[in-house]
Amino acid sequence: MSDIASRVKAIIVDKLGVDENEVVTEASFTNDLGADSLDTVELIMEFEKEFDIQIPDDQAENISTVGQAISYIEEAKK
């Protein structure tokens, strides 16, 4: 697992209070991990802070799974 992936997963475990095993690539924040709309906003903000990036709102709307978050951040950090 890449460094980015492990840091993303750690944030999700912390913020959503879910078990690490549940945070798989395909897992949806809202459908699988119990996040509501505010949790999702908070996750995006934590990603921005952790990786020192800006995620515009229109792009944040497309990040709804663990895998999408990891891909987006890996791309942004290239």
Binding site: L38, D39, V41, E42, M45, E48, K49
Partner: peptide, 9 residues
């Protein structure tokens, strides 16, 4: 501004 979404609630 980077206010937490849970700030108000």
């Amino acid at each position: 501004p980077k206010f937490n979404p849970f700030f108000i609630p």
